[in-house]
């Protein structure tokens, strides 16, 4: 028998907003659940008129799209939420960003004009900074990784170990020369179970004995749909472009550039490129 609380049902949602946010610096150690709690509290502090589910323990209507793992930074996390009053996204943006802790930063907020946000996201562009690893070493390891057809890695989960192929979802990988450390950029398709940057690092260790002296700094730079017919690029279609009203836009990387920081393009720098799998 289901019981419902007394009183009127919660006010209905009248508008949906889509948000891109970043997880930066020491706050990259927040888990997805940590972020959810922090975000819901920020909504309360910013007095955003959230739509709630009905029932005895109402929850704000927020859907999160594939969260970056605990410990990895991100410049491209997405969520969609429903509100009970029509709002100007620009006004919400300032209040909400101020209510979030520094390091959980709101990058963009747009009104949802339709379609499904999760369907506009099929891959991630990752950046892995590996201090103490020579660029040539990394480039060699990446070549061997890409040359393999199947790299089975094991991941420890709460309910035991699980084997997965770390190679197939990696659609593109390139190494960038940088003054301070070697940088790997790669596009990884979202599959189930997910292949994370950590799994790729395990794969690099397996095929090329790559063992970074300190844990690499991992950042998700972008998420979106793969560019049509061009597997040798790390560009992804911006999932908010449609809602912004400019559907053809590309997702820029965090620093606004898609080339290596010393000016060389990804492929020129190390001469490796991935073939699309599947």
């Amino acid at each position: 028998m289901s019981r419902m609380p007394p009183g009127p049902p919660p006010p209905p949602a009248v508008q949906r907003l889509r948000i891109r946010f970043a997880k930066r610096g020491r706050l990259r150690f927040t888990s997805h659940r940590d972020f959810q709690r922090a975000f819901e509290r920020a909504l309360r502090r910013a007095a955003v008129p959230m739509a709630y589910s009905a029932g005895f323990s109402p929850h704000p209507k927020i859907s999160y799209v594939g969260a970056a793992p605990t410990g990895t930074a991100s410049e491209a996390e997405y969520l969609e939420m429903a509100v009970t009053e029509r709002l100007d996204p620009a006004a919400v943006r300032a209040d909400l960003d101020a209510a979030l802790p520094t390091g959980l930063d709101l990058l963009e907020i747009v009104e949802a004009l339709g379609g499904s946000l999760p369907e506009r996201i099929e891959a991630s562009l990752w950046e892995l900074r590996l201090p103490g690893v020579p660029t040539a070493t990394l480039a060699g390891a990446v070549s061997r990784f890409l040359a393999a057809t199947d790299i089975t890695v094991e991941r420890r989960l709460k309910d035991g170990r699980r084997q997965l192929d770390a190679r197939a979802p990696v659609l593109h990988a390139g190494v960038i020369e940088d003054r301070n450390c070697a940088i790997l950029r790669m596009v990884v398709r979202h599959v189930t179970p997910a292949v994370r940057p950590d799994d790729v690092l395990v794969g690099l260790r397996q095929v090329a004995n790559l063992t970074p002296p300190v844990p690499p700094l991992v950042t998700r730079l972008a998420q979106g749909l793969l560019a049509d017919g061009d597997p040798a690029t790390d560009q992804l279609a911006d999932p908010l472009a449609f809602d912004r009203g400019c559907p053809s836009e590309r997702a820029p990387a965090a620093d606004g550039t898609l080339v290596a920081s010393d000016g060389a393009s990804v492929e020129d720098a190390v001469g490796v490129s991935a073939a699309t799998h599947g």
Binding site: R26, F29, S31, P101, T102
Partner: peptide, 11 residues
């Protein structure tokens, strides 16, 4: 485990 507990930055 749970590294967030060591980083501070609470509101």
């Amino acid at each position: 485990s749970k590294p967030i507990q060591y980083v501070g930055g609470e509101l």
